[in-house]
Design a protein around this nucleic acid. Structure first.
Lengths: 178, 178
DNA sequence: GCAAACAGAATGCTCATTCGGTTTTATTTG
DNA sequence: CAAATAAAACCGAATGAGCATTCTGTTTGC
């Protein structure tokens, strides 16, 4: 596809970037949906990490870096870019709240902080893969998952019973959001 | 300083970048030296993290991102950029080996992997600070330090004795490097 | 008064965007 | 079914802005 032909579909470079972001957001939403319903959260998370940071071409990560830089210059691109970021973070925050409500995790830190730490892990693997041709995220991912597991402090589901275990912790149960 | 005036001091943009990298490397070496001799490794590490990811202007991190992107395009800049990266990693790897030899830490994972995980933490805080204007690394740094502490599995120095404790683990003691 | 340090205009290249024309695709008509 | 035609998709050259670098001349410090 020639440079000029792009402008048939997108009015500008910004619109193109917005489109790509939207596509990425949609793809993330899809993957996140499977994560949210997975019986074993950590295993599903590892699978997502494997996809984004090991299987997927490093060029994609590099492209996201380019968008990030562009976002620091262009306010409109910043809005788009940080919008996707916020979308992902909100999704994880909501999920963590739900898992806590269901008694499946008992995080060692408050959930907003947990999400921020989560960011650090994700961002770190992302950046490393983007710029280091020799990066081997596969080697660190199990450790990262282990660390996240430690923070989430997951509770084993009662193995004998079929029904989902109910929260019996002394901390107040959270209301459903909104 | 006008654009043209820069070329009095640097032959090219690459040379300028190389100079900035060298300055950063030297600054890191200085900070690392204090880290290497600090009695409390984790506390010293937290101080360095505080400096780089909280106190220092986010523009500096953004600039490093620019260099990283440039490195993916320009092989000569890549050499410079990844050279600094390797320098830092080698420094940490050597330090971890020494701390292990001295019996001050007993890492839960092998040291090369430990360094890679270390990278993830550093990269993550770095990238987040670079692109997110609302980033609050100060909120996550204590958790990150805690997690690193867990991985390093530090051993308390014997409080009564004045002499440094010697390694008594059954793992083979490492030779001094070169 | 002279050498180093600097500014700012000039040069040539890259890139975002536009535009005129051409191919492909779909639809209509004989 | 084939020819005709309209519309959409696309290419590649042209435009113009921005950036790396050079060059010429001016300022500054000694």
């Amino acid at each position: 596809m020639s440079p000029g032909a792009l402008y048939v579909y997108f009015d500008s470079k910004e619109a193109l970037i917005a489109g790509l972001c939207e596509r990425d957001r949609a793809e993330f939403a899809e993957r996140f949906a499977t994560l949210a319903t997975a019986p074993d959260f950590l295993k599903a998370l590892a699978a997502i990490g494997e996809h984004y940071f090991v299987n997927e071409a490093a060029e994609k990560q590099r492209f996201v870096v380019e968008m990030g830089i562009e976002a620091t210059r262009n306010p409109r691109i910043s809005e788009i870019f940080m919008g996707v970021d916020k979308y992902c973070n909100d999704a994880f925050e909501a999920l963590f709240h739900r898992l806590e409500d269901e008694g499946r995790i008992a995080p060692l830190v408050d959930i907003p902080t947990l999400v921020k730490v989560f960011n650090v892990f994700g961002d770190g693997m992302f950046w490393r893969r983007a710029i280091d041709p020799d990066a081997d995220i596969g080697a660190v991912l199990p450790v990262v998952i282990e660390l996240i597991g430690g923070l989430l402090n997951p509770k084993k589901a009662a193995p004998a019973r079929r029904s989902r275990p109910r929260s019996k912790t002394k901390t107040a149960t959270r209301e459903a959001r909104q």
